[in-house]
Amino acid sequence: MTNSKALYADFEREAVPHMDALFNFALRMTGDSDEANDLVQDTYLRAFRFFDKFEKGTNCKAWLFRIMKNTYINTYRKRTKEPEKVDYEEVENFYENIKPSSTDDAHLDKEIFDNLLDDQVSNAISALPEDFRTVVILADIEGFTYDEIADFIDCPVGTVRSRLHRARKMLFAQLYEYAGSKGYKISTDEEE
């Protein structure tokens, strides 16, 4: 087998299976299917170009995501229109209003979230500020470990933890609002 053939065979085996994950991430980061198409295409062409530099046996998915991140930062983020984002201050105020006052109140009617539409959850994720959206997608959709996410975002694991925690709180506030708009209400024992 020639070098080129062997390289292509390795690439096909190691990198190509992650195309769905990269496309999904690209779509969620750009919010636009054309941009996502270009981003994934550019990522893969660059990845193949530099595949001889990829250290065999290491995490190819994480390597591809890093290439995508750099491509995204250099090109796509500049021209992607960001939708209006959730304000964390508002989220904190929201929590002050709904948090329980005693152990007995500390429960959530989780079933109301079951009635949310898939699109509503996706929209809530899209509305997160980019730093928070990134960690949620990587942790909760792509199943990255905190170490992998830390490597991806170039931050300590502690930052990943706190961002993820805050991101989920922001999402909760947003989803709570959607649930409210559908007529559902989260109750505490105090209200019952």
Partner: peptide, 15 residues
Amino acid sequence: TVKNTIKSKCHRTMC
């Protein structure tokens, strides 16, 4: 709750 909601509602969009 949020983690489980994402898991059950957010499906990967295929390439």
